[in-house]
Design a protein around this nucleic acid. Sequence first.
DNA 1: CTGTGTGCAAACACTTTGCAGGTGT
DNA 2: ACACCTGCAAAGTGTTTGCACACAG
Lengths: 141, 141
Amino acid sequence: MSQIKSLLKDYDLRHTECREEILDIFMSKSHALAHGDVETQLPARFDRVTVYRTLKTFVEKGLIHKVLDDEGGTKYALCKDNCHGHDHQHHHDHVHFKCNDCGLTTCLENVSIPALTLPQGYKRLETNLLVQGICDKCGVS
Amino acid sequence: MSQIKSLLKDYDLRHTECREEILDIFMSKSHALAHGDVETQLPARFDRVTVYRTLKTFVEKGLIHKVLDDEGGTKYALCKDNCHGHDHQHHHDHVHFKCNDCGLTTCLENVSIPALTLPQGYKRLETNLLVQGICDKCGVS
DNA sequence: CTGTGTGCAAACACTTTGCAGGTGT
DNA sequence: ACACCTGCAAAGTGTTTGCACACAG
């Protein structure tokens, strides 16, 4: 897939094996991944540090975004097309859902965060909404 | 304040100096505190470990609740009266606000989380909503 | 060739666990 | 008296930093 190559290029990132494979993992999974998940699923084992730095770089460049987790750990998910405009500015006003059964966190791209009325004087800049429960796959029990 | 003593008693917790002081800190601050914050503000220095265990116990007993943080760290805030019923069951359906200026995270007890329509098959059990922006005090610039 | 990415080692921060002794009730 | 809390030491986990070398453009 030269799709990955052009994606990296779009975001001013050099094409390296490590980045290609990490990006490939994110594109093949529909749920958020923690650093550990990425490391485990990497076919060739790259250095732990490299993975950390790659994720950091991806976030800075806007390829992926952080996803809140109730445990306190950090997870990441791919930014979809509607995540950014031409200026690469992001608006992540979608809901994240964590299934308490399978443990996976997914972006509910179609569920947007409803408007909120904050108290006088509060200015809202960013919003993170994490819903926990049972996902559609696990709920079939 | 024997208020603290009775509060500890209410939650089946022994009255100790450490717990009293930690609880006192939470009651005197209106914002969420990380473990480090608590440790720093403790007048007498108790062991790091004791603070960890105390916080853990408080959460288990329902005195305080975890507050999501965008950084991944864990913060805690006092549960208000409306947090639990007679059976000590919690419902934290209020919004948390983190000010990007002063860095403080506060519970907006009066702003409740709006209803959400999840996709077919998803069951919602718990919801965490973190809003980031500028709080009323910092916005006066 | 030049700037950036990678690997290795080490440091650092955060949190948990085991055990011995002290304390609340 | 007994159960529970605390402190100390140590280990476990997650993340960052410095430096030398390798590699992409």
